[in-house]
Nucleic acid binder design. Sequence first.
DNA 1: ACATTAAAGGACAAGAATATCTTTTATTAT
DNA 2: ATAATAAAAGATATTCTTGTCCTTTAATGT
Lengths: 145, 145
Amino acid sequence: MAIFSKTCEYAIRAVLYIAHKSALGKRVGIKDIAAGIDSPELYLAKILQDLSRKGIISSVKGPNGGFYIENGSLSKPISDIVEAVDGNALFYGCALGLKQCSEIQPCPLHDQFKAIRDQIKDLLFTTTIGAFNQELLAGMLALKK
Amino acid sequence: MAIFSKTCEYAIRAVLYIAHKSALGKRVGIKDIAAGIDSPELYLAKILQDLSRKGIISSVKGPNGGFYIENGSLSKPISDIVEAVDGNALFYGCALGLKQCSEIQPCPLHDQFKAIRDQIKDLLFTTTIGAFNQELLAGMLALKK
DNA sequence: ACATTAAAGGACAAGAATATCTTTTATTAT
DNA sequence: ATAATAAAAGATATTCTTGTCCTTTAATGT
């Protein structure tokens, strides 16, 4: 199994794609995004609808419409996308799925996974949606294939 | 989403349960294990069949039969269970699901996730199946609820 | 106003993961 | 040998994830 659901992988890649296009003041349509991140167009549409409802991205309908990201939202952390799509189990859940796992009643992997979860949290909470814009524009980072 | 699939959570908990019972020279039946780790009995049966076929655990049929773990297998790493059930995407896959992600063609999270994957690998490859036997016997660690 | 464009929304379909049920096979004790 | 036990195996059911299709709504340009 992967760290993120497939839906979440698409979501992150799409948001980063929209972000670096938005930095140029451009809105992007669903076809453009789907091609830009190699994802099924109609499924991605559903995901973006959801992210739009949740305020992570914005959209306008009609000619010259499309998806974009508010300047202020570029400083939101990537964790916002993950939480919106996959929930917060990755940040707070027990690795072995125990509801009552805690310091008092730890599962065998409790201590070791705490460190890993903390590192994952640190990464996703401190990395912003706009953090990769320059490198994406420069073509130094990949979002497809 | 959680780190492991539900199937894998059951698998790890069951194997650790079997391990610490095996340390006492006892075989344990599926009912016992399912109750001991709070899992659906018949589903767990399927998982253990699979682990048995893959040589991670052993079993004997008939009266006084049940599941057990060879002494030598107690020193196998937990990663063996994870790989058998969830595959190795957690250890080697790209966080954003890109097939071609690498140093040459990195996804935006490539570098940061490499560190996290390495830590996960380190934990799962160096922690053995038998590592928690004493604490489990002493009731200091939980496998259910 | 009207036609065109593009996202939103609702419904549906396919596939995978999770869970259950029933029959078969192997082992043990009598 | 036979009966009882317990895992293996095969079949089926349910739920969740992923993916597609079709209609509706909102915005724009003419």
